[in-house]
Design a protein around this nucleic acid. Structure first.
Lengths: 201, 201, 201, 201
DNA sequence: TTTTAACCGAGACGGTACGTCACGTCTTGTG
DNA sequence: CACAAGACGTGACGTACCGTCTCGGTTAAAA
């Protein structure tokens, strides 16, 4: 065979070798499974079958279940980090929460729970997640506050740090511990009763 | 929590029959193990050995690992629920956090993480924990706010609800996700920069 | 339950507890499988399923495939070690070979091949087999020669050792290497052209 | 062995192309490995590494492990098939056994065991080995008897067949099953107590 | 006291999933 | 274009833990 069946695409995933194709299939399968059955009940055999891969291949690429899930979540996180400018601070905050709402509605609650569980077991994973996923959130929060300061909605002295301290905490508490939906009422309450008062103080 | 499901015996286990003696030994062993190795790595075989009990006995008394841990945590929670009146709102809040600090220092972080993990798997446990443990925290928070209103530190319109929304969220986030210590600086920050401003608004 | 469902048999396998029942089921399944598919293709999973046992149970009782097969073969060997007195040396020898013929016809060829293969890997097994199985054969051979000497068919100086040197060698060669049947012609040839001439020399 | 399937090239691989160079390296590596670790524990990966070859190349040239080992053993066999005329029947027999002794001392025991094991799995290999290797032994035995008849040491009616029936059987039994050395005492015993008496009867 | 029944420890059991290893195939890139 | 290098799917391996079950022995109340 003179031409590969894959090289036909001139660009798009430039070095998309078999290697990467397998990684991708496995990560996708992991995301599906973790949402369907949760982290704990996702077996490596099931993962291998779903990804049309072999367990050997999986363990060749990752150290264990935790590492796979970490990478999968990180990937998913990168895909959706819009951070739209709605023109007002309140709008930006609600938009940010809306993103979380949509994510949860898709079943990411189980996924997040799975990841946090995995983080308790695997320190390397925990560090990774903190550095990459949470840091992504932080950057978004900072951008929201910066824009508000530029608009003159907030004093330059407003403590933007507070948002990414409080917002993720309460989101996770609601999702993971209380297991209540991230609905419009909750978003409004969070923004109007907690975040804005603290920022505008 | 005014009445526990177990506290009914005023004289602490006066006629401690073999039955109760076994329950106690197993619960103690569970607490030890969950702190030492975490929920996930606590095996029932290890638990049985540590408690000098048989797995049959364990499964005779509880449905599974989750149920044991739930009861153990509940028990531990009942032991330490001071809620002292320090004379000021700020003092009460710091005292409340101090309690959490001490608990964490003893290794309860792993325990809490374990319980939350178990809650994802076992719905009955989750409901139980929400009703009993979290409700206990809520009552404490309410009491703190009530006393502040009586003292005139807070307007009667102050939203006491906010405390037990925000405080546990941020505590858990710090302990379970960020894995950072609940130190004095954090307590002060939480009280002075977040809780008090919101209550006194 | 005051009386066990098994104790009813006063003798016959006096201590036939669950323990031994499992061993027996597994050994029987092993014999079946090794004859059906050979030693190499007998998987432990298949063995577990066939014996309605779990792999854990198998590995609790034996070190590995080799050890199971060793015990199974030893057991089978013990079951059939007739060594009948036919009245003549030639008759005894042919009877001895007839036993081998029957065994082979039942598919024991594959079993023996499997065991010898396992012996190359597992030294403990090899020693065990040499001591127990081959020694059983040796005793039978000695008995045949002793009876012939008593009858006066052989001089007391006849070297009985020769039988169990030559006979098993040629049997195994024919079965394992040449893969030819142990038929009547072969038995006659072995007895009349080789064994009797050497003994009567 | 008058004609081999490979000997057709009179000039011994005169223009040893890369093709043949690879075959040779792999066969040599196979001989080394099978002697070092045995047939079972010789992995194809190890073989490829040892021969500085790729597994693809190996599987391009042979069907599997068995086929490689078959060819390697055949090659080794052809290298050493002296069959010297020592002037006496007894001398020829001992010389023949001496050859086996030397071979065994070099570690060919493991090799032979490996081949016999492979023969149980691979019928094509088994047939090949029986036809080529064992037939080689038979021809040597026949030659020894023929010379003895010519010398007048044996009657023309002596059954030469007996040698290659008994001799390889007892050699293999001793090597593979009993795992005892092929020492001088054994050779003498075999020749003086078994082979010569039967031939001279 | 003697019986009887509940309870206990010990631990074997059938399962499920784990992470590893080797086989034989297939792909990529170099000489 | 054959090759080395090595990733891949497959499938068996031996281990760990789960939750169930059966066994004797011990302790309590009932006879």
């Amino acid at each position: 065979m003179t031409t590969s069946t894959i090289d036909e695409l001139p660009v798009e995933a430039a070095f998309s070798c078999r290697f990467d194709e397998r990684r991708h299939a496995i990560l996708e399968a992991a995301l599906e499974l973790i949402v369907e059955v949760g982290y704990e009940r996702m077996s490596m055999d099931a993962l291998a079958e779903r990804a049309h891969a072999s367990k050997a291949t999986i363990y060749r690429h990752w150290d264990g279940k935790a590492a796979i899930v970490a990478e999968a979540v990180q990937k998913r996180q990168c895909e959706s980090l819009g951070n739209v400018d709605t023109g007002t601070l309140r709008g930006d905050l609600l938009s940010f929460l809306e993103e979380a709402r949509r994510s949860m509605a898709q079943g990411d609650g189980a996924l997040i729970a799975g990841v946090f569980q995995a983080m308790r077991t695997d320190d390397a994973l925990a560090t990774l997640m903190r550095e990459q996923v949470l840091e992504g959130k932080r950057i978004s929060c900072d951008a929201i506050v910066s824009r508000a300061v530029e608009r003159g909605e907030l004093a330059p002295t407003a403590n933007g740090e507070l948002i990414h301290e409080i917002l993720p905490s309460m989101l996770f508490m609601r999702i993971l511990v209380n297991n209540e939906p991230v609905d419009q009422a909750f978003c409004d309450h969070l923004v109007d009763d907690i975040l804005l008062p603290l920022l505008q103080r």
